[in-house]
Structures are given as structure tokens and as C-alpha cells.
Write a protein that binds this DNA or RNA. Structure first.
Lengths: 336, 336
DNA sequence: ATATACAGGTTAAACGATTAACCAATTTTA
DNA sequence: TAAAATTGGTTAATCGTTTAACCTGTATAT
């Protein structure tokens, strides 16, 4: 593996073809001003010498890297997997590459990751489930001087570019489903209180109750971080405290999985004793102990639309929307 | 979002500090040759002007980008999610970034992806479940003149750098488990025939049979691509053909999920009538309809070790192993 | 026939860093 | 005290492109 082997450059081709490097550059970029014969010769030589343009040099010159940053809280999470794939493929389609960063749900990590991305001079930034959702964070993001788009979780500043689903409508729809199918006392295991997504899902929950004339009982609402074990623990504790539970809406499928484990282990039947639903429709939701009723978020589309929107910004196209809200879909399965 | 705002450069700092850009560079890189006072001044100005070194320029000069390529067949796949995360975090730790590429299991896509990565002048390449595993592909990869490491699926050329688990030992262990716990007629739903991983898993399967004095019956072995629906279809067809099935080893958990769906839908009980196991231990294997017995591959470690090994190559360290085989672990669950 | 346009290039500067080579002034060493 | 070494820098080249500005010879227009 000879690391010292030099790559072919424009100059090499120029020399071989007996013309200037500038001429070669123009040929290779179709910038005109070259005879058919020269064009053919240049292309032949380029192919023969296995030329691969040095994008680093080009980037330096044109001040664009054709690279976008994608920061996610946890790329191993099934949900993000789909988002990442959608984003990556759409980016490739549009001629961009993606550098991936993980934040592990930590704001400082996130800022650090963004800073190194900035050093690499990315053209734009996609923030999935970001922690930088406060108004003050927007000032920080704006100071980076590159376009950015929030994914999944929106900023407190509602004008900030965003692609995701309508959490209020989605959670209202799923709670409506629980009510219409017979429950009026509905526990809600939501995610971290801090996130705008959680806040919206709570709004949907209360809206559904109100619409159906049910009084909102805050003591039925719990918060924890999206983690199977956490979901298990919280629900187990509730059950062991002797509280009656007939229906449970989990803020995400991951919590739903943990919750179902706890419920089944406690000896209750799903859906006979307790009806459970989640949110997201992660890949395996249909194959769980009890296939899970959930709201299907258009995960891959979020990635795709996110990139589309970001690239439009990067390239200065201005017929783009600021806020793109995609539809989520109720998927009813065995668990309810 | 002013796109024209210029970033601070070394020159700006130099001007402000009244010294040359070279001096500033040295200060910022701790290359010595500057008074304490100058150092302090430079650092202060850099911070004040919000200086972020242009890594693109640096990369061009030093001919290293501190960027690695990671090509996977499908980043949305739960298994790769963990690998990607391990790789990304380890890379960050070592000062590298990762550009992600998807191939969708297509060799031409893979080559194309690699070519654009080469254009971006990545320092090294990680190939997860690559299609470029033939000897002729090694020549292609070598011609790229950058270090590469195979992940998960090894090359036919056994000397090629590789990080993954021992598929022969792993599949032998799990088939042993099926035999020791009472089955002698074991169906095997393996993945695509072409892959070295499948071939190794078949070797493990036959080795286990042989060790236990069971005759190998090729008519019990099926191949299909790793996809839930595929697994479902193949197994459903087998059952509908009237074949008796008492134990089933699936080449990956994904196939196991589809298989279990088919078996349960056909009215058979798991594990009473048919005992099923998979391979990989993807995140949700424990929460499926029937929690799945499987071999737990150290997915995140594969990513981590892969990067470690690749970076050692990139940086010319030579106490690295060529082939790193990590242990997989038998996880027995309800399905067997 | 003269001016004009165009085809097919060339030259040189620039992007923002790094780094080898050099230098003047001061300090240390013998 | 003279030579050597150190301190704290500077200059200029370089990485591989792109691109504005320029040039020259031929073809076309008037």
C-alpha cells in the first residue's frame, strides 16, 4: 500500500496533452473554448491516467465543499437510521456528501461537533432532534453563516427552517383512536419534558381529551428519556404502586417496547387488560411481542425533504418553504 | 443568512497582531518560535475574531483530510446502525470525520460511491458488508492508494484487512445449541449465496452437524436476501409444501423475524413446534413476538476496532493486525 | 480591404493554510 | 571576547484547482 503514490493532476494531463492546465480544466468542466480534437484528447488522457479531480483543491478555490453536516443524537437508533438513509441518498442524488456526527443527546457535544464540521467548511447543516432549540441557540446557529434545517424536533423559534411531522395532530389522532375504541382513562408516558416534540405531543394528548369531553388528569402523565429500560421501569413502578391502567400512550415506540415488557411481565394482557400505543413506527414495531399501534412518521422522507430544503438554501434557491410538515399515519395493530 | 460573510483567516489575525501569517500559523499549531506575549495576543485575537481554521486549505497543503469513508449496504438497517455509531464515535475520538455512503447491495453503486469518496481525498476507507470481496476487487481497491479495512464481511483474499466476528465458530455454536437441546433435523435459511459470510455460516452449520454425527442434508438449506418479507415468503412456502420443520437456523435476525411470522401465522407454536434462532442480535431481537435466540455480534465494537485499525494504517503505525476476529456470543431466548 | 467576431487557447492570480529556508538581534558558552 | 546558539520572527513557495483577463490567428461582415 504505497502511500506516497501521487495522484494525477490537471498539470499532468496538460503536459501530456501539450496544453495549459487551465485549458484542461475548462474541457473537463465543459466551460467551452476548446476544439473537438483537444476535448477528445484531454478526456482520453484523463481516463488513461485515471484522473480524479482533487475536490479539496476545488473546494478551496470555489469556497464550496459539496458536503453537508448531519448531526443526530444517536445514529444507532432505528428511527434515525431511516432518516440518515433518506438524507444520505438524497444528498448523493444532488451531488453532495454527508458527514455524520453523534451528540448522544448532549448540547455541548452537539456544539463541539458543529464546530468541527464548520472547520471542514460544510455547505449546510442538518440538525436532527437537536438540543439547540432555544431562541438563544438560533443566534449561535445564525452566527455560523451557513444554512441549517432542523429535522424532527423544531426550534422554539417557529420561523426556523424545519422538516418533520405534526406532533400535535399525530398525537391527537392516536389518542382519539384510543378514546374512540373505548378508553377514557389514558396514561401518557411522554419523552423528556424539555423537547419541543414532547411538548407538542402533550398538546395533542390534551386536545384529544378536550375534544372528547374528558377531563385532563396530570397525574396520568409521566416523562422519561426514550430508552427501553426507562419505559420498562416507569411502567413497572406505576403498576406496582397499584394504579389501575387501561390504556397507555407512549411518546415513542421505544418507550412502548419497554412498557409492554413491563405490562406483560406483570401478568396483564395486551390489549385485553391494557391497550398500548407508541409513536414513530420504527422498523420492528410490527414484529414485537404485541405488534404495536403507532403513528408512522415518514422517517426517510424527513431525511429526503430535509436535504432538499437545505440544498435549496445552500444553492440560493428561494422558492423553498421554511417549515415543511409531513403527515404521519395511524397504524393500528394488535396492541390496541 | 448572509452567504457572503467571509470567514476569518490567518491573514486577518496576522494583520491585527502585526505579524506574519506564518507566525500565526506556528502559534496556533504550537510549533514554537514565538514569545509568550505574541502567543497570548494571537490566541486572544483568534478567539475574538471567532477564527476557525480552514481545514480544506490545510488538507490541500498537507495532503491529508482527516476524513474517512464508510460504505455500507444500507445505513437504515439496525445492524449497521450500531456499526456506524461505533465507527463514527471512535473516529471523532481520533480526530477524524466520517463520510457515509450507501450502496443498496449493488457493486456498481459501491464503486461509484468509492470514486466520489476518492475525489474528496479521504484518508482511508471502511467497507462494511462490501460486494468487493473477490480477488479482482482487491486489485481495484489497491489501485486507490489508500488504506482500507473490510468490516463484517471479509474478502476472498484472507490477507485483506478485516474486522468482524468468526462466522464459522458462531454458526457452529448456535447449531450446536439447537442440537444439544434436542433437534437433529435443522433447516437453515441462509443469506445470499455469494457472500463470504454466508459461506462461512454454512461451514459452521455443516461442522456442527458433522461433530454431532448428523448427516448433512442440502435440501434443508435455503438462501435468500436478508429481508423480513423474503424470510416470511421462503418459510411460508416450505411449510405449505408440507415439509416438516422442527428447528430453523436463520442466517440473520431479519430473516428470523420473517420466519417467525410465517411459522406463527401457519398455526405452529414457537418454540414448542418449531424452534427458531437467528444471528446478529439486532437491537430488538429480545422484544419480538418470540424473543429470538441468536448470536450476538459485537456490532459497535466492529465499528470501533475497524476505525482503530484503519487509522493505524492511515497514520503508518505498523503494530496492527491484519485480521481482527471478535467473539460473538450465544444469547438463548424464548424462541428455542 | 478593413473592422469585427470568434475559436482556441495562454497567463497569472487566487483560495488559506503549512513549512523550509533564511535572518537579525540577543544570549550563552568556552 | 569571539564564536555559537537561541529567540522570534519573515519570506516565499507550495498544495491543485478555477477564472478573469488577455492574446493570436482565422473567418465573417460591411
Amino acid at each position: 500500500m504505497s502511500k506516497t503514490a501521487k495522484n494525477t493532476t490537471l498539470k499532468d494531463i496538460a503536459q501530456e496533452a501539450g496544453i495549459s492546465a487551465a485549458a484542461v480544466s475548462k474541457v473537463l468542466n465543459n466551460h467551452g473554448g476548446a476544439s473537438k480534437a483537444t476535448q477528445a484528447r484531454v478526456h482520453e488522457i484523463a481516463k488513461r491516467l485515471n484522473y480524479s479531480p482533487n475536490i479539496v483543491a476545488k473546494s478551496l478555490k470555489v469556497n464550496k465543499t459539496k458536503t453537508l453536516g448531519l448531526v443526530v443524537s444517536d445514529s444507532s437508533h432505528s428511527f434515525f437510521g431511516a432518516v440518515i438513509k433518506g438524507a444520505q441518498e438524497e444528498a448523493a442524488q444532488l451531488g453532495y456528501n454527508i458527514i455524520l456526527a453523534n451528540t448522544n443527546r448532549d448540547k455541548e457535544n452537539e456544539k463541539e461537533a458543529i464546530n468541527t464540521l464548520i472547520g471542514k467548511r460544510i455547505d449546510g447543516l442538518l440538525l436532527a432532534s437537536s438540543r439547540l432549540t432555544q431562541r438563544s441557540d438560533i443566534r449561535y446557529l445564525d452566527s455560523l453563516n451557513i444554512p441549517y434545517v432542523f429535522l424532527i424536533r423544531r426550534s422554539e423559534d417557529k420561523k426556523a427552517p424545519f422538516v418533520g411531522n405534526d406532533n400535535i395532530a399525530g398525537s391527537k389522532a392516536i389518542v382519539d383512536h384510543l378514546i374512540k375504541t373505548g378508553s377514557s382513562r389514558i396514561h401518557f408516558l411522554n419523552m423528556d419534558k424539555a423537547s419541543t416534540s414532547s411538548a407538542d405531543r402533550l398538546k395533542g394528548y390534551t386536545a384529544a381529551l378536550k375534544d372528547n369531553g374528558i377531563k385532563y388528569d396530570p397525574s396520568l402523565v409521566y416523562n422519561t428519556k426514550p430508552d427501553i429500560q426507562e419505559g420498562y421501569t416507569v411502567i413497572r413502578n406505576i403498576l406496582e404502586s397499584g394504579q389501575r391502567m387501561e390504556a397507555l400512550f407512549c411518546g415513542c415506540d421505544i418507550l412502548g417496547i419497554g412498557a409492554m415488557e413491563a405490562i406483560l411481565e406483570y401478568g396483564l394482557k395486551i390489549p385485553k387488560d391494557v391497550r398500548v400505543c407508541g409513536y414513530d413506527d420504527i422498523e420492528f414495531a410490527a414484529y414485537l411481542r404485541r405488534p404495536l399501534t403507532t403513528m408512522r412518521q415518514p422517517k426517510q422522507s424527513i431525511g429526503v425533504k430535509g436535504i432538499e430544503n437545505l440544498v435549496a438554501r445552500v444553492e440560493g434557491i428561494d422558492d423553498k418553504q421554511n417549515v415543511v410538515v409531513l403527515k404521519s399515519e395511524l397504524v393500528v395493530r394488535e396492541s390496541t
